[in-house]
């Protein structure tokens, strides 16, 4: 038995407040989001939330423990700074998907636009399609899996996040390099693909990218 909120008749703040009640459990459905911002942000309960339609900015941001499914496209910053739980976008995601995310799993079945996983801090992101330019910029920790292609400047100034891309990479950002796929990486990738329900993919088709670590220390040649 699930509880349904209709955003056509219930104000967003009431819906979010109802999802913030202490001790919340169960299944919730949000209908008619019509591109609204901040839908189902700040959840911190082991609940299932299904949003039926396209959402605007920051949907499911700061998520903890909840499993959120967006049946449609998501605007800027979906699941930004999420801590745990899962967020699943069945359509495409706009720029900065999963920005600064610290934990949990974000799955985008379609494409994610520019700056996907910017400043990633521990979240895992699996993108079914392709990602835009400047993705994983300054990504510190976590994994980003891309079943399609990556745009320009992938992983610019990256720290210790690991990137797996199956398709082409238009260009790599500063200090981001292709790296060897060792057995532990194939195993890690297989686990991420399985968690995102893409277990038929062959990890051998993917290339790993990460930091060359040349920017970690001051280098006098880089001064002006």
């Amino acid at each position: 038995m699930s509880t349904t909120f209709d955003l056509a008749t219930t104000p967003l703040r009431e819906v979010n407040a109802a999802l913030h009640v202490e001790g919340l459990a169960g299944e919730y459905v949000v209908e008619n989001p019509r591109g609204a911002h901040n839908v189902a942000v700040g959840l911190d309960a082991p609940v299932t939330v299904t949003i039926r339609g396209h959402v605007g900015y920051y949907a499911a941001g700061m998520n903890q423990r909840a499993d959120v499914t967006i049946e449609g496209n998501a605007g800027t910053g979906v699941a930004e700074n999420m801590m745990s739980g899962t967020v699943h976008v069945t359509g495409n995601a706009s720029q900065s998907a999963g920005a600064t995310g610290r934990g949990g799993l974000l799955v985008v079945d379609g494409d994610a636009a520019a700056r996907c996983g910017i400043s990633l801090k521990g979240l895992d992101i699996v993108v079914g399609g392709s990602i835009g330019h400047m993705s994983a910029f300054m990504a510190q920790r976590g994994r980003l899996v891309v079943r399609g292609d990556a745009g320009d400047a992938l992983g610019d100034s990256i720290y210790e996040a690991r990137l797996y891309v199956r398709g082409s990479v238009r260009s790599l950002g500063a200090d981001c390099v292709a790296k060897e796929m060792r057995p532990e990486h194939r195993e890690e990738l297989a686990g991420l693909l399985k968690a995102a329900c893409y277990e038929d993919d062959d990890p051998a088709d993917y290339t790993r990218y990460g930091s060359a670590r040349t920017l970690y220390h001051f280098h006098s040649d880089n001064t002006y």
Partner: peptide, 22 residues
């Protein structure tokens, strides 16, 4: 600028929707 401005157009549920590339 945002999808919500398109949400009331007739037939939008069948539209092809995308973000323009840079």
């Amino acid at each position: 600028s945002e999808y919500r401005a398109l949400a009331s157009l007739p037939g939008v549920e069948r539209a092809r929707i995308w973000e323009p590339e840079p």
